[in-house]
Design a protein around this nucleic acid. Structure first.
Lengths: 198, 198
DNA sequence: GTCTATACAAAGATAGAC
DNA sequence: GTCTATCTTTGTATAGAC
């Protein structure tokens, strides 16, 4: 007898799932309500409006992503693998959560030319987490490598993987490809900082 | 006395401009009509519906992009520069056309979970042009390098640049960064195929 | 907090005249 | 081909009862 989750939880689950699959703008409120088995009034009582609900769902997703990523960093052995754990995390995240068409945050950004301040800050949080976390991992584990530069380059490659998924690339191969390119970027910057031995 | 372009041209210009700035789905028909100074009936007489108009505008944009890219390839001197001309072309395209928020084709894909067949094929054309053209450039100018692999890797990096622009990165620096990463990918594959001279 | 019913707004498309 | 006026559908949000 699994007790049914609260209306609030059901709304968040439905909004998250549908935004991931179809995009937040492409998903009408009615569809979220139908999926959650909740009436309109309940949604607006809890979240104020559709954007409020979506923002909450995105925040929850971001914090889950952060946990997954951190776990993959912790599991990695070598310094290089700790930086590249980003790609392991992406694969794991995609298999453990509701399937998203590419990236829910980039998708929301693409769908929303003029996001409200709450949405904008949530989307910015996603990018900030990406770049800053990469930088701190690099700083901690790859002494001598310019961490900020590395973080930007790997962010670019990671974002490219997501974009290629939107283009229709198969997920696992393109993640592997991104990982390979990122590894190249790491070695290149490492060589530059401390010229090749041998 | 510049003669006013036909209603059809004005519609294409307006749709292209607005789709580039805001996204096709985020742009209401009324706004296109207002910008083009055209009445609704005219739009539907020419293009059938909104999607028909957008698809035509996207096709026109794609063919212009192809021209710009080819010109940059022709102008490049070294084999490596011919492959990397993609990034020169991106910078040039962005400065010579109406400013787009990131990429009109990826934007349309992101906004449209279930595109109609015409739109879907136009979006696929964009990706196919990207990958296939890169492959043929590599085949022609970089003998011995696995052209298909190279084309995929550079497509990924290029797509990453576009995605980073969506994330809010400054355009010129991120294009330069993408170019640098792509150069790395080229050299890596070249070294693998024909071990370094010297 | 939650429901039913409904109001209100936006957007896509068409009718009929010229 | 093009216009004015209007219809239809869809989508967001609220009123009022329980």
């Amino acid at each position: 007898m699994t007790p049914q989750p609260s209306a609030r939880e059901r709304l968040l689950d439905a909004a998250d799932d549908l935004a991931a699959r179809q995009g937040m703008r492409a998903t009408p409120v009615d569809e979220i309500l139908g999926r959650a088995q909740v009436s309109p009034a309940t949604l607006y009582a809890h979240f104020g409006n559709k954007d409020g609900l979506v923002v909450e769902a995105l925040r929850r997703r971001l914090s889950r992503w952060e946990v997954t990523w951190q776990a993959c960093v912790d599991e990695a052995d070598t310094p290089e693998d700790k930086v590249l754990a980003l790609f392991t995390a992406l694969a794991r995240h995609r298999s453990s959560h509701t399937p998203s068409r590419w990236c829910v945050f980039l998708g929301a950004a693409a769908e929303t030319p003029s996001p409200g301040s709450e949405l904008a800050s949530t989307l910015a949080d996603d990018t900030r987490l990406l770049v800053d976390r990469l930088e701190s991992i690099a700083q901690e584990h790859l002494a001598g490598v310019p961490a900020r530069v590395l973080a930007h380059r790997i962010s670019l490659v990671y974002t490219g993987v997501l974009g290629m998924i939107l283009r229709g690339s198969e997920v696992d191969p393109v993640i592997a490809e991104g990982r390979a390119i990122a590894a190249l970027a790491i070695r290149s910057l490492a060589d530059g900082a401390a010229p090749a031995d041998t």
